[in-house]
């Protein structure tokens, strides 16, 4: 019997975007990282090209993040007090990129010096997010953009209510930005348009449709990302940005990952559960189209990277296990 495999001919393609800059390109990174370029849905190698595998980032902070789960603080141990040491540790843990989150308590000097130290301590392309309050974000990201001039950082977070200053800073110093919208296809698209309207090339905008953690709304993020990716492949230009999500942050907010005491016995071993929580959140989002996932635990990084490797393995005919 002949079976004709249905192959979709997608007219669209995800945009290729490069993070970081080497010395030749005006930065100091040992290599750059390129994402995007897909011409099919995630890992459907039989149908199209997936030129770049999804990328795994590790989130570090400019100062000890006391609200993080004790499990994370224990794992990273001393380095959480020192962004440079943490950056090094994260690089050794296998991160492809780093996300540095600034703190509400940071002064401009704290922020720029954290960025400087991290850039000096490691070779990876860097994403820098403000603490998440509009005024403070703007206050810190502008000097950070100047400090990191030439490095093609990703600056964040651009949101509908606060994107202009960050985009302007990116324009001034040739960086990228992260465009974040709350789990909605049209809002995601709209913010990309608005940012692009300010003059920032589409090659410098990552799309962050936001996600919920496993058990906390992941299905929304998952479906919105699937829809965005379908729209991109169908040729809708303003949805063709590679997608960045932060499953690490989301998963470790969930009680299941965050705490070990006073939880139901049937939740099982805390450490294993927490890692599973972060891993499944990340891998499902990768399956729905994420091009960059930012994680927090080094063990998760290993597991997610292994999964990506397995999914990128382009076996002509799927391997059949002998019975």
């Amino acid at each position: 019997m002949t079976v004709e495999i249905p192959v979709e001919k997608w007219p669209g393609q995800v945009r290729e975007i490069t993070l970081g800059a080497t010395a030749d390109e005006g930065g100091t990174r040992s290599h750059t990282v390129t994402v995007g370029g897909e011409t099919t849905l995630p890992f459907l190698h039989f149908e199209g090209e997936i030129p770049h595998p999804p990328v795994v980032g590790i989130e570090i902070a400019s100062r000890r993040p006391d609200d993080w789960s004790p499990l994370l603080l224990e794992t990273w141990s001393d380095v959480v007090d020192d962004p440079a040491a943490w950056a090094k540790a994260a690089e050794e843990a296998g991160a492809d990129i780093l996300l540095l989150t600034l703190s509400l308590e940071d002064s401009v000097d704290d922020a720029t010096s954290a960025v400087r130290q991290v850039l000096e301590a490691c070779d990876l392309p860097l994403i820098v997010f403000g603490p998440g309050q509009a005024d403070k974000d703007n206050e810190l990201i502008v000097p950070v953009a100047e400090e990191g001039a030439g490095e093609r950082l990703v600056l964040g977070v651009c949101e509908e209510k606060n994107y202009r200053t960050i985009v302007a800073a990116a324009l001034a110093h040739d960086h990228l930005v992260n465009s974040r919208t709350p789990m909605d296809v049209n809002l995601a698209k709209q913010l990309i348009i608005l940012i692009h309207d300010m003059g920032l090339p589409l090659e410098q905008i990552l799309m962050d449709p936001t996600t919920g953690a496993l058990g906390y709304g992941i299905e929304y993020g998952y479906s919105v990302m699937e829809r965005l990716r379908l729209a991109a492949l169908q040729g809708d230009s303003m949805t063709q940005q590679p997608m960045l999500v932060t499953p690490g942050e989301e998963a470790w907010k969930a009680k299941e990952a965050k705490v070990g005491d006073d939880v139901p016995a049937e939740w099982g071993d805390w450490g294993e559960r927490a890692i599973n929580w972060e891993t499944l959140t990340a891998t499902s989002l990768i399956q729905s189209g994420a091009d960059l996932v930012v994680l927090r635990h080094p063990e998760t990084v290993q597991r997610v990277q292994k999964t990506i490797d397995a999914l990128m393995a382009e076996a002509g005919e799927p391997e059949l296990v002998a019975a």
Binding site: G215, E256, A265, W267, L280, R303
Partner: peptide
Amino acid sequence: EEEVVLASQHIAKYGGFIVLDHFSQASAYP
């Protein structure tokens, strides 16, 4: 550890019956 991840792929991508070889609370719950 990897079985959980692959099982979750099969949940999302069209599995009907999924047969696991390991059981632990910490992976069954997620």
